[in-house]
Amino acid sequence: MQNEISEPLLSLYKNFLNTTCQLPQITDEGLKNSQTHGKDLFSVYHELLNFIPKEYDSNLISFRVSTNPITSQVAGVLIKGMYPGLRDISVKMQHDVIDTLNSNYPCGGADNLRKEIENDEAWKNHLNEKKELFQKLDNITGIDPLNKEWHTWFDHYFDNLSFRFCHDLPYPCNKEACISSEVALEVFDVGNWEYNYIYTKSNKSILYSVARSLFLFEVFQNIQNKIMKLDSIKYRHNIAHDNTIASLLGALQITNLKWPGLGSEIVFELYRKENNPDMFFLRILYNGEPLQTSLKNINSWDMVPIDIFFQYIHTTFGTKGEILNYICNGIYH
């Protein structure tokens, strides 16, 4: 895509517009990566494990995307990687108001918790310590230091610099200087700290993560239905966002969280004991490794008896999600 930009806008954002991408849009390399990932998934779950069928079957396999077009772009090429001959497929999507894959559904309690987290002394001290870094970035990019969206955390700078890093593209420059690799790496470290603090380290993190993890309760329901033989689907693939994954990891109490990059994945695998069909176990993988957790009675979500997972969900969300409703309604103190 080649953008045509009027001169006033060009002069305002010229230091950031060294790109032919339009938000929201996956880059060519991102699409190639997604297709390769689809091929790899098929090689594991069909060729190695014979878990999914050779031919796509909607009674056994389900794909779902969020309302953000980026996830549909990824789904298209990922499915092509898994089933290259497939021409007709139904991909599920929830209404944008309640889309749990986007983690932005209405929840006043979550919004208030986020404000409380950003009002923590540790968070305010963090932003104060990084004033000089903000100043370096603003001076080069031309971003207004009074623009709150860019200065309540490093999210925007992280996004803009990380895609350049991943694609080996130059960082933004002005007439005098460019953002150096050292400054970019500092932004990445800061972004990781911020995500870790928001979703795991603040004393409000677990409440906030749970409030933004309604999708985890849906996963619990799907597993429960599968065990009760109420659902024929055996492979569900959901394509979401970094904040969705961060919320899930926070709700599962990951020991240390870094900003989830493109292609990050959480896999929930349900196992049944061969000689005891009523005994089930759950393994949760994050980027290919068993998820390490700070929960004292678990340590790792690796072949955990399913009753322990169910008990944790009931304790965290309620048996019918009522605790999540309490949090969203501000009843959490």
Rank of each mutant, 00 (worst) to 15 (best):
P8I: 08
N15V: 10
T20N: 07
C21K: 08
C21W: 06
Q22M: 15
Q22A: 11
P24F: 00
I26P: 02
T27M: 08
D28N: 14
N33A: 15
G38M: 00
S43W: 09
Y45M: 15
L49F: 01
F51L: 01
K54P: 05
E55I: 13
E55Y: 15
D57M: 11
N59W: 09
I61H: 04
F63R: 06
N68G: 01
P69G: 10
K80E: 03
K80M: 07
G85A: 04
L86H: 10
S90C: 14
H95V: 14
V97A: 14
N102W: 11
L113E: 07
E118F: 10
W123D: 05
H126S: 10
N128C: 07
E129H: 14
K131R: 13
E132G: 12
I140C: 08
I140W: 07
T141E: 06
E149R: 04
W153I: 14
Y157R: 05
F158N: 07
N160P: 02
L161R: 03
L161I: 14
S162G: 03
F163N: 12
C178I: 09
A184H: 01
N192F: 00
E194Q: 11
N196Y: 07
N196L: 05
Y199S: 04
K204I: 05
S205D: 14
S209C: 06
V210Y: 02
R212S: 10
Q224K: 10
N225F: 06
D231F: 07
R236S: 12
D242A: 13
S247G: 07
G250V: 01
A251G: 03
S264F: 00
Y271F: 00
E274I: 08
N275S: 12
P277M: 08
R283M: 10
Y286E: 09
E289W: 08
Q292C: 06
T293L: 05
M303V: 14
M303I: 07
V304H: 00
P305Q: 04
I306G: 08
I306A: 02
F309D: 09
H314Q: 10
T316M: 00
F317P: 07
E322C: 00
I327P: 02
C328P: 11
